[in-house]
Design a protein around this nucleic acid. Structure first.
Lengths: 144, 144
DNA sequence: TCCTATTTTAGAATTATTCCTAATATTATT
DNA sequence: AATAATATTAGGAATAATTCTAAAATAGGA
């Protein structure tokens, strides 16, 4: 178990508890995977990875764990078009950039810090910015 | 057939032709529905509405028509989370706001005209901003 | 330890969407 | 106008992500 996770566990437990949710082995495993590897995996990808450590785990459990973690605010969903939902344990406010060449998803700063500049009266409770195009590396390659 | 559509038809025909796509009765019907009613319908909703005028139309055709219209740039997809894709014939650059109270989708200006302010090297080819919260009307009601 | 509520699991169900195929319609060619 | 080539439609089957269900396992408190 990573040092980073160990340090976070009390916080995680508390944050789950605040939503009346227990920290189970499966939830810890899912959260640990998201911390360890910030490549924005899908539920199916997490399922494959999790089976290596908890062979009896089921895909439904992955979905349950993700739902619990999202509800408690420990994990964020990432939706890019209609592709399968991806998940992310980076809780700092940020947005996502999908590279059409290498298919990697980069965390990028939310433009203008989320000052949406809407007409008066709109109240924003949640925002999702999905950008797609070329990441710096692929853009560089393409120029050559 | 609405006056607005009639005026647009030559333009629509041309724009489809540029992608090698014909303007058929079904495609015209789907586009007309999107022009007439800018409530961001889903494919299923369009299917129900279309059946009233073209009873033999099939859901697959609605999807085909939407794909053709999107490919030719006449229609935009609107994705809010994992809800069914919605469609929109407003081609001016804009973003979407989903009201959690009345469930209406409003077109709003894309923040800062889409000047995303990313680190150097990122090239944006497409952007989607999905906001959710309360629209002015529901915000007003809630305050009372 | 026992009780109760929560969680996990496996598989079935659901649902949006895509794919496939045959029939039909449209366009270009003769 | 007849024919050939191509595009499109319709209907149903297929796919895939996600949710639901019910039974078994587990955790935490009395």
């Amino acid at each position: 178990m990573s040092c980073c996770l160990v340090k976070l566990l009390p916080k995680v437990t508390l944050q789950l508890a605040a939503s009346g949710i227990r920290l189970t082995k499966q939830r810890e495993e899912v959260f640990a995977m998201l911390l360890q590897n910030s490549d924005h995996p899908t539920a199916a990808e997490l399922f494959l990875r999790a089976k290596r450590r908890v062979p009896s785990i089921s895909l439904a459990t992955i979905y349950n764990c993700l739902e619990a973690l999202v509800d408690s605010g420990l994990v964020k969903e990432v939706n890019l078009g209609r592709a399968p939902t991806r998940y992310c344990a980076n809780l700092l406010e940020h947005s996502h950039f999908y590279c059409e060449s290498c298919r990697a998803i980069s965390d990028v700063e939310t433009p203008f810090g989320g000052a949406w500049n809407l007409p008066p009266g709109f109240v924003v409770s949640q925002a999702e910015v999905s950008l797609r195009g070329l990441c710096p590396r692929c853009h560089q390659k393409e120029k050559q």
